[in-house]
């Protein structure tokens, strides 16, 4: 089973890369852009059939390695 997880910076944590992307999009005449926050996406294939159990396991992976909880939040999709 494949589980998807995203890791993003917490609100209030400075994201210079997101800001640079936002400024570039604006300069490319995407005037609609109000804010950009950059994050990471993980596609994790596990040998667990039960979806709930698989998600719980990926959540544990986020807590222990994929996200640094000092500055990042994660979400299992």
């Amino acid at each position: 089973m494949k589980i998807k997880a995203i890791v993003t910076l917490k609100e209030g944590v400075l994201d210079p890369q997101g800001k640079a992307i936002q400024q570039t999009l604006s300069s490319m005449s995407f005037s609609e852009v109000k804010k950009v926050r950059q994050g990471k996406y993980f596609d994790i294939e596990v040998n667990i059939e039960d979806e709930k159990k698989a998600k719980a396991k990926v959540e544990e992976m986020c807590e222990k390695l994929l996200a640094n909880l000092v500055i990042e939040d994660y979400k299992i999709l």
Partner: peptide
């Protein structure tokens, strides 16, 4: 404690 992030000026 804490974390080291990307330099402010990239």
């Amino acid at each position: 404690p804490g974390v080291l992030q990307r330099n402010k000026n990239l």
